[in-house]
């Protein structure tokens, strides 16, 4: 087996090791994305509210 294959094979524990790392990646990325989208949504909502207020003072 070549070095790269061996690396992905993880001595027969590939399923366990790589699924752990995949789950961790998903959780960490979600943690970054959630506040990014929350902030965007909030800013858009506040902008809409302010436009509305300007139209009907």
């Amino acid at each position: 087996m070549s070095g790269v294959q061996e690396f992905f094979h993880m001595g027969g524990y590939a399923v366990y090791v790589w699924s752990s790392y995949a789950i961790a990646l998903v959780v960490l990325v979600a943690n970054i994305l959630v506040p990014v989208f929350q902030r965007r949504k909030l800013l858009a909502r506040l902008a809409r509210r302010q436009r509305r207020e300007r139209r009907q003072p």
């Binding site: 506040p35 929350q38 902008a47």
Partner: peptide
């Protein structure tokens, strides 16, 4: 810090600095 910024914006949404920031 990212989450706290969103929470601060939400809580201070009527403050002047937030209104200016939104504009």
């Amino acid at each position: 810090l990212m989450r706290a910024r969103v929470e601060v914006l939400e809580r201070e949404r009527n403050a002047r600095w937030v209104r200016e920031l939104v504009e």
